[in-house]
Design a protein around this nucleic acid. Structure first.
Lengths: 154, 154
DNA sequence: GTAATACCTGTAGTCACTAGAGGTTCAAGC
DNA sequence: GCTTGAACCTCTAGTGACTACAGGTATTAC
């Protein structure tokens, strides 16, 4: 076991493994200001406290929720001011929820069209392939607008 | 109207507008080899044929379907060999469909969790905010694994 | 003492474009 | 023929959120 007593300083490797990310990511977060510049030991290596573990967990969790780094920055700022009203947090989360829902919608349209197209392929030569045919001629789609596939991923 | 007779050479601007993309994107596709290097007029400007319009439409349409540029490259290659069997096209499309479906699944898990969290916020101060609380403590989630938010977007 | 591992900085790469600088060519009107 | 403005050219850098690598230093275990 390499568990460290809670009062001891934590190295970047342990911090990373405890928060399910990589040392590179930790340094990246420090660089872009999501984490404060870590104090160093005599050999110039970063040493962390439990508070930083908590902060990084918050960051990772928010990222897992799909919030952008900029949104995480705002959320952290709000979390740092607990006596303020939480309207802003609420708005940010609702906006994000709306984005996720619209992404799901667009992906579902795309999925249906892909499904329909794939189902029509009879496994013969490319010349008769329905997939290639549909890609070649937009009029063969169920939809006449773009499906928003590439955009749906953003 | 600025319509061009079909036998005349087409400029990059018209090609772009007819395929709903930008001149920059056309040049980018040429650079990465999705489009062949265009012949030039005396003043070094690109001139396109109807065949290129068709090819670019294919590319845009495949991208709208959410295929990666690498996948589009493969699809183009297959479309260029119409006498071959279309198993590969089929496999590529099915793999892509599976990816889209898994992305939808992950996004739906994320959406449900976000929805639940947002619903629990009573609009009081940040200190009591359920959203901040959940982000601070992963155990408060419905799920105990990562929600795959950031990954779901890829 | 030595060897393996962990850490450091800085830079470049990923994906699919997009934006801008700074210059050239074209097309239309006078 | 000249001028003006739009369209075009090349090249470089920026986007988001990391990831990977090169080349060096520190720590740790034996």
């Amino acid at each position: 076991m390499t568990s460290t007593p809670s009062h001891a300083a934590i190295g970047i490797g342990e911090l990373a493994s405890r928060t399910h990310c990589k040392p590179e990511t930790v340094r990246y977060y420090e660089k872009i200001g999501l984490l404060p510049a870590a104090p160093r030991n005599e050999g110039n290596q970063r040493r962390y406290s439990e508070a930083t573990v908590q902060r990084l967990m918050f960051v990772r969790h928010a990222r897992d929720f799909g919030f952008s780094v900029e949104a995480v920055r705002e959320l952290l700022d709000m979390a740092d001011h607990p006596s303020q009203p939480c309207d802003q947090v609420d708005q940010l989360a609702r906006r994000h929820l709306a984005e996720v829902e619209s992404r799901i919608q667009r992906l579902m349209v795309l999925r249906d069209e892909l499904k329909r197209t794939v189902a029509q392929c009879d496994g013969d030569s490319v010349a008769q392939c329905r997939i290639i045919e549909v890609l070649s001629d937009h009029r063969l789609c169920g939809h006449d607008a773009a499906h928003g596939g590439a955009e749906a991923l953003r």
